[in-house]
């Protein structure tokens, strides 16, 4: 399966802006929160696809889109955007084509974020 989007996995610009207003401590907390929240959202997304509940799929995708963007996880955010758009389209089942990439994208983003956090001052 091809990647659905040429968007980069990670962009540090949103985190740099947050760092300016909240400092490294905020970034660390957000990354922890992102690591703990995202698996649940992806599971919800996958469950909604299995049960063909497109409302839940759209809502989970909406959340994924939003939380990923703040952390610079552009590829996940874009996947969320596409799945959300699909949820209200005439063929919402197409959402599973995108959702299949979510877990893998999350793993890649985790690596990038860990590297980013390791560069932050204590």
């Amino acid at each position: 399966m091809q990647q659905p989007s040429p968007i980069p996995i990670f962009d540090r610009a949103p985190l740099d802006e947050l760092n300016e207003v909240g400092g490294p401590e905020l970034i660390r907390e957000l990354v922890e929160l992102f690591f703990s929240e995202t698996p649940g959202i992806i599971s919800e997304l996958e469950g909604a696809i299995i049960s063909e509940d497109w409302d839940i799929m759209g809502r989970a995708a909406h959340t994924l889109k939003s939380i990923s963007y703040y952390l610079g996880a552009l590829i996940l955010s874009d996947l969320g955007r596409m799945i959300e758009a699909t949820s209200t389209s005439p063929s919402p089942e197409a959402g599973k084509n995108f959702a299949g990439h979510a877990a893998n994208a999350f793993d890649q983003v985790k690596r990038e974020l860990r590297t980013f956090v390791s560069t932050l001052p204590e």
Binding site: V21, G22, L26, L30, S66, Y70
Partner: peptide, 17 residues
Amino acid sequence: DDDPISLKILSNCLRRG
């Protein structure tokens, strides 16, 4: 906000503001 990350960013930035 039901999104915990957005809620955290908002609260934190506002407090620092």
